[in-house]
Design a binder for these strands. Sequence first.
RNA 1: GGCGCCGUGGCCAAGUGGUAAGGCAGAGGACUGCAAAUCCUCCAUCCCCGGUUCGAAUCCGGGCGGCGCCUCCA
Length: 494
Amino acid sequence: MNVAERSTNLCLYNTLSRRVEPFRPIDPDRVGIYGCGPTLYGPAHIGNFRTFLFYDLLHRYLSWKGFRVHFVMNLTDVDDKTIRAARAAGLSLREYTAPYLEAVMDEAELLGVRPFSAYPRATEYIEPMIELVQRLLERGLAYSTPDGSVFFDISEFPDYGRLSGRDLDEARQSERVVEDDYGKDDARDFAVWKGAKEEDEAVGAAWDAPWGRGRPGWHLECSVMALSEVGETLDLHLGGEDLIFPHHEDEIAQSEGVTSRTFARCWVHAKHLRVDGRKMSKSLGNILTVRDLLEEGISPATVRHQLLSAQYRTELNFTREGLEASAKAIQRLLALDDRLRSHPVAQDAPGTDLPDICAQATETFQSAMDEDLNVSSAIAALFGFLNKVNSALDAAPRVLQSERAEAVAVLDSLDQVLGFLEVGRRSREVDSELREWVEGRIEARARARADRNWAAADAIREELANRGITLEDGPAGTRWTSDSASVDTPRAQG
RNA sequence: GGCGCCGUGGCCAAGUGGUAAGGCAGAGGACUGCAAAUCCUCCAUCCCCGGUUCGAAUCCGGGCGGCGCCUCCA
């Protein structure tokens, strides 16, 4: 399949139109995407990572289809929360956010999130932010207040509310009375620039601007980073569903306010996940972080699988049972990968169904993914492949080299998108010292088995099992894996 | 109150008009020194009530239940 054929057919749900529609980038050769990234005020939780893994899946899939993707994810390192937290910790903004930045990048890497094209940080875009505010002021779309703040004037932007589909007049009436100390004209106007307060200065979050010293509003950050890093019109703008209003609505107002062009052609939002059927929240005390899970011994591939197993627009329910299922699914994939690569080949082996199985898997996988990233169906296609390949290998002691190579290639190809093997293999890596020891024990066991000394053989199996090593006796001898089971399958928790 | 989503087997989850993918768990069988892995077989009529249709999990109406957003939470 060539790139042109691959490029067509992908459909995505556009929040703006509330419909699933064909993905049509302005320039098919270079897709420009901006995804809202984490705010560095604390450890990222699995909900954040569900969204980031959705980004990753889309990123990988577009690349797989042959698009050249320019994918930017920002890092918010200045906002109300980071300032408040830095202040409480007695640190500068920079000092406070640094460890969270490092953590989120590390965890993303562990989970197999491929590097994006750029990771702009808000504090590095202060100059262009000031310029954008200046232009909004010049255009009469924003006004400044005596304390040095600047607000966007919603009444000047008729399209306001289109993304989130809300009626402004009603919004006005039901508007919560928030006594904001920045003093705006209309409750619905939002801050593009916030006049410096004492706590801002304390943590180094204040910059000089023509209308007064202060710091950027949250929405402004994203507008500026997106416009600077991707361009005036994005092919896709991504985020968690909670960002639709007001964050993305405000981004649109500011961006289109200065460019007079469509800011993003398509908006795609990931649904929030639930934990054990409930919303993840501080008050319920059920916030899980990737670090928590990994420290429990759950493998990164398992977490990846669980977080990707449902389509991005469904309310994924994250459970212990689900993690166990994911762990087993990963193990089966790794087992298939090993088996396929090492299956005996022969020049004169009879042909098998493998070529058909391969073709069908790729096609089914692709049409599932094309349908608004229906990853559940796509994974089903992968498991259909797994099942049929295992059957075919059971039936054929030897296969043609070319057929085996094709099947390996398909497995690798699908994994370019899903990344389960990619991440799963890492957990199996062991150091050479362990490898040597294990292989020595296996030899000893082989001698015991040759002597039909089953007790001794089983003792060695047991010995290895205690070290997390699983043995599999097959026609070609004994194979072993550093058992991700002990790592992968958590004990049922009470 | 406004806008929106969802309710499929023990659990997770596809399927949006033609008679229920896949994963986990469970049962039986093959293979195995024992295992593991693998394979085979079995295991749901889709929250409830009406309606439309030759035909509905899938469309419409009404219930019941769960959930999200509504100013800074991905």
